[in-house]
């Protein structure tokens, strides 16, 4: 059986171990606290983009509103721990569950929309959320934001230490990656890709397409909420601009640049965009004396170039030569009796 999976979807252990190795090794190499912060943020944003990749790349449903779900997580954690003195862990779980149900309820009507209409509807959700956190200033602190959010601590070990938090975030990201890989490499993964290709044919085969779309939407929202809670506890301060549609678009660009067709692409895209972001800011500031959000201009250019020349994203560029190398091996396994004798083992 495992052989069938490998033939269909390739190896997953090797890239996974490679990523784990990389994560364990980086703290020894990277000494700069500044870069460490970026690595932590990459971990946090990867959790969002992994979920988004399932939704966009696999199920083919666009969302321009995931910053709202990211924000629901962050604000649930923030409000519950500051105003109600709840345990940050409990707040994190409450945030995820709440976001899941909110997204599920929103998903039922809006996922009936397709393409541009769905994009606009999700954009609307993001704007509604933004207005709500600005307006409900009794709870959220309005435009001034919410300060004094406590840090997380694990078994009495304060995660204020960057190294601990780094490992904590990446453990969570790896777990989310594992869940996503399990989904993608199963019948559900095929169902999602089928929905992407032809909804009508998928329905004819007996799949309740609505349920799958809504479930994946809610799941990706719950992932975003988890990331949001971590973000709130890491930065210990949240303010509305972090959760505006520009952030949603940023998440989308991360997924697109990495390659929406692969969950690995989500992590790659997040990493590339985060470092690019810093480079643009640094170059813009020191050489051109520009302050403010210049990166937005460059993002626009990047997304146009990626869509024109690399519509399948960076991951495709990396994985293609590897697959070509393996092609010769594959032909041997392809012999039919070989596969049948292996199945069910």
């Amino acid at each position: 059986m495992s052989k069938l999976e490998k033939v269909l979807y390739g190896n997953r252990l090797k890239p996974f171990l490679f990523l784990v190795g990389l994560i364990l090794m980086l703290p020894f190499v990277v000494k700069s606290s500044y870069i460490f912060t970026i690595l932590i943020l990459i971990g946090i944003y990867s959790i969002v983009t992994l979920g988004l990749c399932l939704l966009i790349g696999y199920a083919g449903q666009i969302s321009l509103g995931h910053a709202a779900f990211f924000g629901i997580g962050a604000y649930t954690s923030g409000v519950l721990t500051t105003s109600f003195q709840l345990s940050p862990w409990l707040a994190l779980v409450i945030g995820m569950v709440t976001t899941f149900f909110i997204a599920y309820l929103i998903g039922i009507p809006i996922l009936k929309l397709k393409g541009h209409f769905l994009a606009l509807a999700t954009l609307g959700i993001n704007i509604i959320f933004y207005i709500l956190i600005l307006g409900l200033n009794q709870l959220t602190g309005g435009a001034a934001g919410l300060i004094g959010i406590p840090s997380l601590s694990l078994f009495g070990l304060p995660l204020t230490d960057k190294l601990f938090f780094y490992f904590f975030v990446w453990t969570a990201a790896l777990l989310v990656l594992l869940l996503s890989l399990n989904i993608v490499r199963s019948h559900v993964g095929r169902v999602l890709r089928s929905i992407h290709d032809s909804e009508i044919a998928t329905e004819t085969l007996g799949v309740k397409v609505e349920n799958y779309k809504v479930a994946i939407f809610a799941l990706s929202a719950a992932f975003a909420s988890l990331a949001g809670s971590m973000y709130a506890h890491y930065i210990t301060f949240v303010a509305p601009p972090t959760f505006y549609i520009t952030k949603s678009i940023l998440f989308l660009i991360m997924v697109m640049v990495g390659g929406a067709g692969s969950v690995w692409g989500a992590i790659l895209g997040t990493t590339v965009i985060m470092f690019l972001n810093e480079i643009i800011r640094f170059v813009g500031h020191t050489y051109f004396g520009i302050s403010g959000e210049v990166e937005i201009v460059v993002y626009g250019l990047i997304i146009i170039l990626i869509m024109m020349f690399l519509p399948k994203g960076l991951m495709h560029v990396i994985s293609k030569p590897i697959q070509k190398l393996k092609q010769k091996k594959k032909v041997k396994i392809k012999s039919h009796k070989d596969m049948i004798s292996q199945k069910g083992v």
Partner: peptide, 18 residues
């Protein structure tokens, strides 16, 4: 109405959904 981005095997495996 076939699934263009799935392999032939995956396409046919989809038929077993029920």
């Amino acid at each position: 109405q076939i699934f263009h981005n799935l392999t032939v095997l995956e396409n046919v495996m989809m038929g077993a959904h029920v």
